[in-house]
Amino acid sequence: MINFKTDERLKIRLPDLTRDWHEYPPHQQQRILIEWEKIRGTIPDRIKELEWEIEMLLTDLSEEDDFERSCLINEWISDRASAINDLWIWYRTNPEIHA
């Protein structure tokens, strides 16, 4: 049975495959895909949350006078933008069942 583990950075569950996708029998692939589609459907909302966080951070950055704090805020923005990119990659991941 396939486990799905929560990725703390992305805040979604990801499949924890122990072997190559094509090595799973079709009935297991089907079960994995059903669960993945449920998770995949939550990704756009997670992206919206991160975009909102970036907007708030950009507001903070525009009001920040301290250089070191500005660098820290930029790092947070970069981390969230990176997570959005990774979420889009996962969203586009769509394995197929092989008989």
Rank of each mutant, 00 (worst) to 15 (best):
L33G: 02
I34W: 02
I34C: 00
E35K: 03
E35V: 08
E35F: 02
E35Q: 12
W36F: 03
W36C: 05
W36D: 01
E37I: 03
E37Q: 13
E37G: 00
K38R: 14
K38F: 10
K38N: 13
K38L: 14
K38C: 06
K38G: 09
I39Q: 06
I39M: 05
I39T: 10
R40N: 07
R40G: 01
R40M: 02
G41W: 03
G41R: 11
G41T: 09
G41V: 11
G41C: 08
G41F: 05
T42C: 03
T42Y: 01
T42S: 10
T42Q: 11
I43R: 01
I43N: 03
I43E: 06
P44R: 02
D45H: 08
D45R: 12
D45S: 14
R46P: 01
R46N: 06
R46Y: 01
R46A: 05
R46W: 00
I47P: 03
I47A: 03
I47C: 06
K48C: 00
K48N: 04
K48Q: 05
E49F: 09
E49L: 07
E49C: 01
E49G: 02
E49M: 06
L50P: 00
L50C: 06
E51Q: 15
E51Y: 02
E51P: 02
E51H: 07
W52F: 11
W52T: 15
W52S: 13
E53R: 13
I54N: 10
I54H: 03
I54W: 04
E55R: 13
E55Q: 14
E55N: 09
E55P: 00
M56E: 01
M56R: 13
M56L: 10
M56S: 07
M56A: 03
M56W: 04
L57K: 01
L58C: 13
T59D: 12
T59Q: 07
T59W: 04
T59Y: 06
D60G: 03
D60Q: 15
L61I: 14
L61M: 14
L61G: 11
L61W: 11
S62K: 12
S62Q: 07
E63I: 02
E63T: 09
E63Y: 10
E63R: 13
E64Y: 11
E64R: 07
E64H: 09
E64T: 15
D65H: 12
D65Y: 11
D65F: 10
D66V: 12
D66Q: 09
D66Y: 07
D66N: 15
D66K: 10
F67I: 11
E68G: 04
E68F: 05
E68A: 08
R69M: 14
R69S: 11
R69K: 12
R69G: 05
S70T: 06
S70F: 04
C71W: 09
C71P: 00
C71Q: 15
L72N: 14
L72S: 15
L72E: 14
I73K: 05
I73A: 09
I73M: 10
I73Q: 08
I73S: 08
I73C: 08
N74V: 03
N74A: 04
E75Y: 10
E75F: 10
E75D: 09
E75Q: 12
W76L: 11
W76V: 04
W76Q: 11
W76R: 13
W76P: 00
I77W: 02
I77L: 02
S78M: 13
D79T: 10
R80W: 01
